[in-house]
């Protein structure tokens, strides 16, 4: 395959995953934590698709498709939780909202 080999894509995916992990651990607003989580999921997808190309097997791509669907579902619920939190006037801060009550 002309152009970069599979290893290059894996490095991009690794860096992306690290960035997302930093975002999840360091940001306070739950919306941004959710966004960083999406970055991590996308990095995993990139890895899956890169390996699918490496081995010539479409299983990786099917896996990535399922991950996309599950991520969409998870975002929907996460956003629903955040909107519920905002409605009850809870502070939108993951450090303070560490105990789910009520």
């Amino acid at each position: 395959m002309s152009g970069p080999g599979v290893g290059w894509y894996l490095i991009v995916a690794a860096l992306l995953f690290g960035t997302g992990a930093l975002g999840v651990m360091l940001r306070r607003s739950p919306l941004i934590v959710l966004l960083s989580l999406e970055i991590m999921l996308n990095a995993a997808n990139l890895t899956l698709i890169a390996f699918a190309r490496q081995h010539g097997s479409l299983d990786g791509q099917v896996f990535a498709l399922v991950v996309m669907g599950v991520a969409a579902a998870e975002v929907a619920i996460g956003l629903g939780l955040i909107v519920a939190m905002a409605r009850r006037r809870l502070p939108l801060d993951v450090d303070q909202a560490s105990a789910l009550r009520g």
């Binding site: 992306l16 960035t19 966004l35």
Partner: peptide
């Protein structure tokens, strides 16, 4: 673009 926007998100 991917890595740049990734850093921008966080």
């Amino acid at each position: 673009a991917c890595l740049g926007t990734g850093v921008a998100v966080v």
